[in-house]
Design a protein around this nucleic acid. Structure first.
Length: 421
DNA sequence: CGTCCACAGGAATGACGGGCGG
DNA sequence: CCGCCCGTCATTCCTGTGGACG
């Protein structure tokens, strides 16, 4: 029983406000991430005195609040600078956030984004006599010109520019980008640029060259996974705002949190689990979630998450993934030489052959070996396939390809994404 | 032991489409 | 509307590497 006698009539039985469960929602308070938020704001605080803060590299697996914390701190920073009594130094802070996975995978695209971002063009820009007319929207310029342009804008307006690069491991020429952005600080007197890089890949740091590593990692933060009790608080907080009272029994919170903790302490996963559980309950006309809903939602969530990553892949990559799944689901092993067959493993050669015939049957023209290999590596980066160097004994030099889960499942997901039958 | 096979991944180059100036 | 300059995707060519085999 709630303390209210009458609940307002609602179409939905469980959800009051679904937005709250979205991964993009940044709550006013971040449970269990206060010290991280403080650390970030402390590093950034020089910006309020018009001094350059250190670059930050944030590392932590998915759903550990990296993005939320950064957005939260930036939001706070913007609030402070917009109030004259808090912003005594008159600092002009521009923060540009982008997720490098979605369309910002090269230094060019990133520079373009920074320059075209609303916050860079908002007030002030046109008024200053920095270059006369064409200030807005210039693309079709080469990177060095973009660079000069950015320098001018930042310097002429004494901007403290904070570039947030989420999923920074997805940008191809990071080293170039790092060099470019940090060089601005050497070449201009007023104005400064600092970088916040976010990644969930451990290996990323090693991929950087020594120079850009030391610049990016001036300050380093590691976000640890959430424990089950921590996830409980997070879930309870969101349920409080997003769900009707009593829609989520205590036991279900614990269950979802436990499952979330098993899945790398991924809050995003846990929240999605909550959402799907609620939808299941609603679909049966109930007003509260049962443990069975949660269990049933699990599989759905995993498929959903995978589907999301597959869906945004270029079609060619999807076809490559499909070929792998298809071959492995048929138990593909290397047949040409009388070699020991390995369960669930395929060689790059045979997969390429299969890919060619799959492409034909889909009425698409297959790409060359060369690109096929690049796609394979790309899929590995995304964690969709496992590649292993065939060490000794197997064959000259080849790659062993495996899938993280059942080939049939992946096949189905890609089929859905490509719109096959 | 040299040669060939099967593959990895760098470099050069071209086709294509988008925004911009005229 | 056209030509220009860009980035991206893709091909082609190439060099390197390691096991297999006569």
């Amino acid at each position: 029983m709630t303390d209210k006698l009458f609940e307002p009539a609602a179409e939905r039985g469980v959800f009051k406000n679904l937005d709250v469960l979205s991964p993009h929602y940044v709550p006013g308070e971040l449970p269990h991430r206060l010290s991280e938020a403080k650390a970030v704001s402390k590093i950034l605080s020089p910006v309020l005195r018009n001094e350059k803060p250190g670059n930050i590299f944030i590392y932590g697996s998915t759903g550990t609040g990296k993005t939320s914390v950064v957005r939260h701190v930036i939001r706070e920073l913007e609030r402070i600078t917009s109030s004259p009594e808090d912003n005594k130094a008159g600092a002009c802070i521009k923060a540009v956030y982008m997720n490098c996975r979605t369309g910002y995978g090269s230094k060019y695209q990133i520079l373009l984004k920074i320059l075209s971002d609303d916050s860079m063009n908002a007030e002030g820009m046109e008024k200053r006599p920095l270059e006369g007319r064409r200030n807005k929207g210039l693309s079709g310029l080469d990177p060095t010109q973009l660079f000069e342009k950015l320098k001018n804008v930042v310097s002429a307006n004494n901007i403290s520019l904070i570039v947030v690069l989420d999923e920074i491991d997805m940008v191809k020429d990071v080293d170039d980008l790092m060099y470019l952005l940090t060089r601005i600080n050497d070449e201009i007197s007023p104005g400064r640029v600092s970088i916040i890089g976010i990644s969930n890949r451990t290996s990323f740091k090693e991929m950087l060259d020594a120079r850009s590593r030391s610049t990016l990692c001036e300050e380093e933060l590691i976000f640890r996974c959430y424990s089950a009790p921590q996830l409980e608080t997070i879930l309870a907080q969101r349920a409080d705002i997003g769900l009707y009272a009593n829609a989520l029994p205590e036991g279900c919170i614990k269950l979802i949190a436990a499952l979330g903790a098993q899945t790398n302490g991924d809050a995003r996963y846990a929240l999605k689990l909550l959402q799907k559980s609620g939808e299941l309950a609603e679909s049966e006309g109930r007003k509260s979630i049962k443990a069975d809903d949660v269990k049933a939602a699990r599989r759905k969530v995993e498929e959903d998450i995978m589907y999301e990553t597959v869906k945004i892949l270029p079609e060619n990559q999807q076809v490559v993934l499909y070929s792998i799944a298809d071959l492995l689901s048929k138990g593909g092993q290397y047949k040409r030489l009388g070699e020991p067959s390995l369960e669930g493993v395929a060689f790059s050669g045979e997969v390429y052959e299969h890919y060619q015939s799959v492409s034909k049957s889909l009425d698409r023209s297959p790409v060359t070996m060369r690109w096929f290999r690049d796609y394979l590596n790309e899929l590995q980066m995304l964690g969709l396939v496992l590649l292993e160097d065939s060490g000794k004994g197997v064959r000259g030099k080849t790659t062993l390809i495996k899938l993280g889960r059942r080939p049939e499942d992946i096949k189905g997901i890609v089929e859905a994404s490509l719109g096959l039958t």
